[in-house]
Nucleic acid binder design. Sequence first.
DNA 1: CGTTGAATTGACACCGTTCAACGACAGTGG
DNA 2: CCACTGTCGTTGAACGGTGTCAATTCAACG
Lengths: 254, 254
Amino acid sequence: MVEEIEQYPLTGRFLMGRLRHAMSPREREILETLIEDVEEFDRPTRIVSRGQLVERSTILISGFMLRTIEEHGRRHVVGIQVPGDFVDLHAFALKRLDHDIVTLGASRVGYVSHARLWQVMEDEPHLARLFWFATLLDAAIHREWILKLEQLKARRRVAHLLAEIWTRLDMVELARGNGFRAPLTQTDLADMCGTTSIHMNRALSELRREGIVDFRRGLVVARDRAQLERHGDFNPDYLYGEGKLEVGDELDKR
Amino acid sequence: MVEEIEQYPLTGRFLMGRLRHAMSPREREILETLIEDVEEFDRPTRIVSRGQLVERSTILISGFMLRTIEEHGRRHVVGIQVPGDFVDLHAFALKRLDHDIVTLGASRVGYVSHARLWQVMEDEPHLARLFWFATLLDAAIHREWILKLEQLKARRRVAHLLAEIWTRLDMVELARGNGFRAPLTQTDLADMCGTTSIHMNRALSELRREGIVDFRRGLVVARDRAQLERHGDFNPDYLYGEGKLEVGDELDKR
DNA sequence: CGTTGAATTGACACCGTTCAACGACAGTGG
DNA sequence: CCACTGTCGTTGAACGGTGTCAATTCAACG
């Protein structure tokens, strides 16, 4: 898969581990050349603001991004994106977003104008459907977050969240054997799990003491991945990875 | 708007109050004739099961539906749909759903085969984009649920939920002046808010005592709608109704 | 009029919040 | 080299929201 990144340095991770195999070489080429502009950030930066009129969409090339909403002086995180994610493809159809999009640590992004996406809709229905699929993946992840917020207490919620990020990084070949690295703070995790950083700190301490997972300044290590996933009640089906809830038929026609 | 329902009895509420005005009469006609089959249910029925291979998508003509996930003997609700919603358009691109879809009380649904949707993708890019938009609306609602689960305690969560349903029913012209009717139980509300039916009962009692909203066996009444929305910290922007975060440009071209 | 599902109530333990304070560490500038 | 500063992480204690279990009442319906 390394050659995929060499061949498509900007978009090689799009749908990797999911439906990338359903993209023809021609479609991969089209996607790669859709990127009109690349930008790099070395610190947390807001890419899109809530309510702002958007004329282009962003794809995450490297690094991480958060979907955040700030209300009553408190920040809430409603989603996290990893490399390869077409972050605000949503904005193509919605025109305005209901939330902010911010980078996390150092990251690189690519931009695609909506005018060109509109061309894809007209000329490349198969590729368009893959784009649609990508946004539906986000929706599926949203639903899983709702489920886990309803179902689990803070300690298991983080476990689930870490297991999810690990699997998503795995799909784009960015995880390590025993964990992963991401520039997250305990406050970030708290904002994603709907709890306070103080409580998150206690939850992480327990998980560390119990040997389930060790989170330290952005480095996540677990000796027993299965145990972590069990603890977070994590089932990767909702990520629609290869070989799971496999998607067949028309999407493979090209 | 009543004539819209007379003219398109099956799909007249699709995107009503949102982007329906961007649909040409021809497109409305196409959508109406996409419906190949209509089915009626008088009791709660599961339409789609988690993981099941789906060959057609469902549009809700009348009644309500829930997106549910059952785990460890407990049911969780990750979404609710109202008439006009193209409920599992998601399944067109995903092929399998990560959750169950069940009716609530009496309802009527229409079915559209994925083969015909595929034709729309190829021949009607503008309509296809409206379909895409509809699924993104669901995603925006998911995000708002995540936000409110993270942000609010049980009592305000229900207030928000009731305010949301009210507004969504308003958009398809099914609300009353001072509230709405929906065959929901306190347990349903609890499963949507991530709490227990017992606690939900106490929350609803308080809201009733405080004169904020009265929920009784599926009948929701509030004398002061603004107060209810304030209590639930409800801001309708995320529903992308007309005149709010209005969607302009290409979607209006036809 | 009895059955059934839904709504209601009380007691008690626990999870999570809040406020306040302190410790660890990296980067900065004198 | 060290003091300063800011961010992140850690800890304690009091309080309140929520879960749990069990029992009871209510409304709808055949």
